[in-house]
Simulated scan of single mutants.
Amino acid sequence: MKLLIADRDETERLGIRWLVTSSSLPFTSVLLASTLEETLKIIESERPHVVILELDMMKEDSFSEMKWRLADYVKKVIAITTEATFARAMEGIDLQVEKLLMKPLSPMQLQSTLKKSLLEIESQ
């Protein structure tokens, strides 16, 4: 299974990758993206099973493109944000995310969400 971590903050990306690779989560590939353009390219070329997406990296004009690429190529999306706003929650709903997590991330909550996503993918 492939995981894409799309976050502007390098420390966050590397921290999440470390958490995933040092746990028993069965990802064979953990991909990283730091920009929206990079994220869209990786989604289309690599077709990751799960994407951890920082909502704050998206601009309003790119939202619809991200929405259709996620719907076409990705099985599960976990959204993360620094802003606990209604607008961010609505974006998450519109993207049909598995869960919306707030930064700073709880390692236990992220692992639990990833495990749940993997179980649902395997049962499909």
Rank of each mutant, 00 (worst) to 15 (best):
K67C: 02
V30S: 03
R8M: 09
R88Q: 08
M90Y: 03
T85E: 03
L114A: 08
R17M: 13
M108K: 12
V30H: 04
L32M: 12
L105K: 03
Q109R: 14
E37M: 05
T113S: 15
I93N: 05
A84Q: 13
K103N: 07
G15F: 04
R69S: 11
A87T: 12
A89Y: 11
L53G: 08
K75F: 11
I16P: 05
V51D: 04
S34Q: 15
Q109G: 00
L101M: 12
S123P: 00
G92D: 07
S23N: 01
T85W: 04
Q109Y: 03
E65D: 10
G15E: 03
S45R: 13
T21L: 11
I78L: 15
T81Q: 12
L119T: 07
F63M: 09
T85K: 05
P107C: 02
M58I: 13
I80V: 15
F86T: 14
F86R: 14
S106Y: 00
S29D: 15
K116N: 14
T85N: 07
A6N: 09
E98F: 11
P104Q: 05
S23M: 01
R8N: 14
K67F: 01
L101Q: 08
D72A: 15
S24K: 07
M57L: 14
E65N: 06
R47F: 00
R69T: 05
E60Y: 06
D94H: 06
S22P: 00
A79Q: 06
D72K: 15
S62A: 09
W18Y: 14
K99Q: 13
S23R: 01
S22V: 02
W18T: 11
Q124C: 10
L3N: 01
L118D: 04
E12S: 15
L118H: 07
V97H: 10
A6T: 10
R8H: 13
L3V: 02
E122L: 12
L55V: 08
R69N: 08
E65M: 09
H49T: 03
R8V: 08
M58F: 07
S64W: 05
I121L: 07
S45F: 03
V50A: 04
M90E: 14
L95M: 06
S23Y: 02
L70Y: 11
D94L: 10
E54N: 15
T82E: 14
F86Y: 13
F63Y: 11
P107L: 01
R88G: 00
S64P: 00
F86P: 05
R69W: 01
D56W: 04
L70D: 10
L14M: 10
A79V: 05
L70V: 07
L36V: 09
E98P: 00
E12M: 14
L3A: 11
L4C: 08
D61T: 05
A89W: 05
K103L: 13
W18F: 12
K115C: 00
A84F: 10
I5Q: 07
L36A: 12
T28K: 12
E91K: 13
M66I: 08
S45H: 07
E83V: 03
D61L: 01
V51N: 03
T39Y: 11
E60I: 11
T81K: 13
A89M: 11
V51I: 03
E65Y: 03
A6E: 11
L55H: 08
R88E: 03
E46Q: 15
I42M: 10
E98T: 13
T81G: 12
